[in-house]
Design a protein around this nucleic acid. Structure first.
Length: 418
RNA sequence: GGAGAGUUCGCAUAGUGGUCGAGUGCGCUCGCUUGGAAAGCGAGUAUACCCUAACCGGUAUCGAGGGUUCGAAUCCCUCACUCUCCGCCA
């Protein structure tokens, strides 16, 4: 959520910035200001009446005063009702506004994304490379058919060396973030509506979430949990920055048909992800952003995979974010780069929504924190990338060095079954 | 799933319809005292919104929401959570 004061004081500047990501037809700041005016006006009126009532409530009133107070009470509840309507309307419009893009974020949609960094190069094969579905099947490390039998399409089963490799990736991530000073969180994987609303995923993603009969939804990203962790809290300044990372399976309905090129494990209903999250003082957030980006890049580079980092244009960033970069790994069989991490700075947008604050020692005032999140990393596209980028002529796959210590017998190669 | 007890200002507690936004103790901050400290003494110590240049002031908040009332921490209803006992449990 944006700051209404900022909108009132710098209407044109806010408008210009928001138009980098919004259709002009959807943007009407003047209407919001009008609502805010009438909201303030009503608050003043009703507060004055309540002050009068409180004066009389301090003593036992006589019959005549009781009559007057009764009348006053009716005026108050009428005004309160009106105020509630205005405030709901105001809040709804405010929540619908996306974050203001950072100055260096370009306008427009996906087509304006720009490659900001490249690691490694596209592998050259002296043989006909296989795609990851073929590889995983011949290596017997992913079972797609039985997963479909048990749970339907869009699921897969990690098996044997595949499960070990997946687990090794997660261990690699856990050790890395721990060494970087992040606190490990294993959150619940079901959450209630209030939390999903506070994290900004509701109402927008209601249809993309799985719902239980108990009115809980399955976690779609650990960001939902980490972003709620300090909701309605005032953090002691000396505790900042707070850095967390969480592992969770992520469940997404991914409603709509799969495109053919997204077969295999590139898009599924369930995948594993480790998520980084930071709560920082406002003046530190851009430094923290660069830090998280570089941490995600090093983590991915550590696997030896060819990837690129894209700076997203304003319209391609998710609504809560002022700036986002995506780390995209090369999938040879598809001939494209697929997202494995997204690192974003929300500034105070999420903190405002969730009332996450700290006491500024210098000014003595309570201020909103800045929040940042970044995947570190999602595995569902890493495994295909590893299989495809590191495949050998004999159909075997080399295991990245950094993962071998997590595998039995320091396994260095996964060989096809006969 | 059933029965009971609870949820008040950082912590512990007091408060059963008006003078309670709320007492006391502890903690914390500042000051006095001291060579220094402890003890003691004094003052202060929530959040949001509205008004204001600021001070001052106003409104709301006693788990959440609704109701009764001229007036609710206090009475009634619903819900959430915590604890105890019973039942169930791949």
């Amino acid at each position: 959520m944006l700051d209404i004061k900022q909108i009132r004081d710098n209407k044109e500047a806010v408008e210009t910035a928001l138009l980098k990501r919004m259709d002009p037809a959807d943007l009407d700041l003047a209407a919001i200001i009008v609502l805010d005016d009438s909201r303030k006006d009503l608050i003043q009126k009703v507060d004055t009446l309540k002050a009068e009532r409180n004066q009389f409530s301090k003593t036992k009133p006589d019959a005549e005063t009781i009559k007057r107070m009764k009348d006053l009470g009716e005026q108050i509840s009428a005004l309160d009702n009106e105020l509630e309507k205005v405030e709901n309307d105001f809040r709804e419009k405010m929540l619908a506004l996306p974050n203001i893009p950072a100055d260096d974020v370009v306008a427009g949609g996906k087509e304006n994304n720009a490659v900001a960094y490249t690691f490694g190069a596209k592998p050259e094969f002296s043989f006909a490379p296989k795609d990851h579905v073929e590889l995983a099947t011949s290596l017997d490390i992913i079972d797609y058919e039985r997963a479909a039998k048990m749970s339907g399409s869009g699921f897969w089963i990690y098996k044997g060396a595949g499960a070990l490799l997946e687990w090794a990736l997660l261990n690699y991530f856990v050790d890395y973030h721990t060494a970087n000073g992040y606190t490990f969180i294993l959150p619940p994987f079901l959450l209630n509506e209030a939390s999903a609303t506070a994290s900004g995923h509701l109402p927008k993603f209601r249809d993309d979430l799985f719902w239980t009969e108990d009115k809980l939804c399955l976690n779609a990203t650990a960001e939902m949990m980490l972003g709620n962790y300090h909701r309605d809290e005032i953090i002691k300044t000396e505790l900042l920055p707070l850095k967390y990372f969480a592992y969770s399976p992520c469940f997404r309905r991914e409603a709509g048909s799969y495109r053919k090129e997204e077969r295999g494990m590139v898009r599924g209903h369930q995948f594993n992800k480790v998520e980084m999250f930071q709560y920082v003082k406002p003046e530190d957030s851009w430094e923290a952003f660069n830090q998280m980006r570089s941490q995600a890049e090093k983590l991915l580079a550590g696997l030896g995979l060819h990837f690129q980092t894209s700076q997203l244009a304003a319209g391609d960033c998710s609504a809560a974010m002022a700036k986002t970069v995506d780390l995209e790994v090369w999938i040879p069989s598809m001939g494209i780069y697929k997202e494995v991490s997204s690192v974003s700075n929300a500034l105070d947008y999420q903190a405002r929504r969730g009332a996450m604050r700290f006491k500024n020692e210098v000014s003595g005032k309570t201020e909103f924190l800045h929040t940042l999140n970044g995947s570190g990393l999602a595995t569902s596209r890493l495994l295909p990338a590893i299989l495809e980028q590191f495949q050998q002529a004999d159909g075997s796959v080399l295991v990245p060095d950094v993962l071998r210590r997590y595998l039995p017998g320091q396994m260095s190669v996964i060989k096809p079954v006969n």
